[in-house]
């Protein structure tokens, strides 16, 4: 019964994708966009700034930043 349902869902999506016209172009666009976003942008241009730090290190880093910005915020505006 469950297998039959899974097959039905599979066929539903398969037939749907096969019958697409404009949708094929859109899917290509979506896949290219997601590739650029997650593989190129996220990995090479947008690493999380605090990545690699433990929770304690993040607390210490941001705590220090918030305290030190009081003194040196002018350096960030240049």
């Amino acid at each position: 019964m469950i297998t039959k349902r899974i097959v039905q869902v599979w066929e539903f999506y398969r037939d749907g994708f096969r019958s697409m016209t404009i949708g094929r172009t859109l899917w290509k666009l979506i896949l290219i966009k997601l590739f650029i976003m997650f593989v190129i942008l996220k990995l090479f241009f947008f690493p999380a700034f605090l990545k690699g730090k433990s929770t304690q290190e993040k607390q210490d880093y941001v705590g220090q930043e918030l305290v030190s910005r009081l003194a040196d915020e002018n350096s960030l505006t240049n």
């Binding site: 859109l26 979506i30 966009k33 997601l34 976003m37 996220k42 947008f46 700034f49 990545k51």
Partner: peptide, 21 residues
Amino acid sequence: FAVGVATGLILEFQFGTNWSN
């Protein structure tokens, strides 16, 4: 929908990178 979907996720990337504090 197809062109716009997930473009908002880039804002979340920016939170982690540009706005970490």
